[in-house]
C-alpha cells in the first residue's frame, strides 16, 4: 500500500500560502517524520492529507484511490489521526477508544467493534485504565489513549501531530516505540510530525524536511546532513553517533 501526496497547496484565509505544492509518498510498514521549524506547515500537511483541511490544489492517493473523493466516513476507515492537542475528555478510556470505531458503527457497537477497541487497548497497554475517565490520566497515558483510538479505526495510514511534545523522556521513548511497533506489525504507513530531531533519527525510516511550504529534502537517514539542517532550521549542527544511534548536536549561535 502506498500513500502518494501530489501537489498539495493550502493557504489560510488572508494569509500567505502554507503549503506550496507538496509531493511525497510513503509505504506501509514505515515511519515517516515531517521535520521543520514552527509554522512551517507540518500540522497543516497532516490535516490536508486526511481532508480535515481542504487543500486548494493537489491530490492524495491511497494506491489507486483518490482519498479526497471519498466521504469523510470512508476516509476515516483508511486514515487515523492523532491531533496535537488532546481534549480533556470525561469519557472513559474504553469509550474513547471505542470512538475509533465510529466510522464502522451504524447504530450500536457490534461485538467486532468491542473486540477491536479491546485489541487497541491491549496494544497500548492501557488495560488497567479502561473504565477511568481520560481526564484523570497523565499526559503520556492520555496520548496512548488517543493513539489507541486511532488504531481502533484499523487504518492503513496513521497521522500523528507531535505526539511527544508534552511528554517526558520516558514517555517519549515508550510512545515512539509503540508507534514503530504498530507500523511494522500492522503494516501501517505512519507519518509523524516531530520537533525532536534525535527522536526522529532514532525511530523514523523516512524524513521529510519542510520549509516555506515545500519539501526541501526527502529520504532516509543519509538525507539528514548538517547542510540541510542549516538550510531548514538555520542552525549549525554536528552529526554524531552515540551507542549506535545518530544524534544531532547544535553548535554555535
Amino acid at each position: 500500500m502506498i500513500l502518494s501526496v501530489e501537489g498539495i497547496e493550502f493557504s489560510y484565509p488572508s494569509a500567505p500560502p502554507v503549503l506550496n505544492g507538496v509531493n511525497f509518498s510513503m509505504e506501509s510498514g514505515t515511519v515517516s517524520a515531517i521535520l521543520g521549524i514552527n509554522g512551517s506547515g507540518k500540522s497543516t500537511l497532516l490535516k490536508c492529507t486526511n481532508r480535515i483541511l481542504r487543500p486548494a490544489k493537489g491530490v492524495v492517493f491511497l494506491d489507486e484511490t483518490d482519498l479526497h473523493e471519498l466521504a469523510q466516513t470512508q476516509i476515516a476507515k483508511h486514515v487515523g489521526y492523532v491531533p496535537q492537542k488532546c481534549t480533556d475528555s470525561r469519557l472513559t478510556v474504553f469509550d474513547t477508544v471505542l470512538l475509533g470505531r465510529k466510522p464502522y458503527i451504524k447504530w450500536a457497537a457490534t461485538k467486532r467493534d468491542i473486540e477491536m477497541a479491546e485489541h487497541a487497548v491491549r496494544m497500548m497497554k492501557l488495560e488497567k485504565f479502561v473504565l477511568r475517565p481520560v481526564s484523570e490520566l497523565s499526559g503520556g497515558e492520555m496520548q496512548k489513549v488517543i493513539i489507541a483510538r486511532a488504531l481502533a479505526q484499523e487504518p492503513d495510514v496513521l497521522l500523528l501531530d507531535e505526539p511527544t511534545s508534552n511528554l517526558d523522556l520516558k514517555n517519549q521513548v515508550e510512545v515512539m516505540n509503540l508507534i514503530s511497533e504498530v507500523a511494522r506489525k500492522k503494516k501501517v504507513a505512519v507519518m509523524i510530525s516531530v520537533h525532536d530531531l534525535n527522536l526522529a533519527l532514532r525511530f523514523a525510516d523516512v524524513f521529510l524536511l519542510l520549509k516555506d511550504g515545500v519539501i526541501r529534502e526527502c529520504g532516509g537517514k543519509e538525507s539528514i546532513t548538517p547542510r540541510i539542517i542549516r538550510e531548514v532550521y538555520e542552525v549549525d549542527v554536528v552529526l554524531g553517533e552515540v551507542g549506535g544511534y545518530s544524534v544531532v548536536i547544535p553548535v554555535g549561535q
Partner: peptide, 20 residues
Amino acid sequence: RWSFNALSAGEDAAQSLGVN
C-alpha cells in the same frame, strides 16, 4: 450520539473519525 461523543473530543478529532 456517537457524533456528539466524537465532537466532544475536539473538532479535528471528530472530523478524523468521519463526522461531518
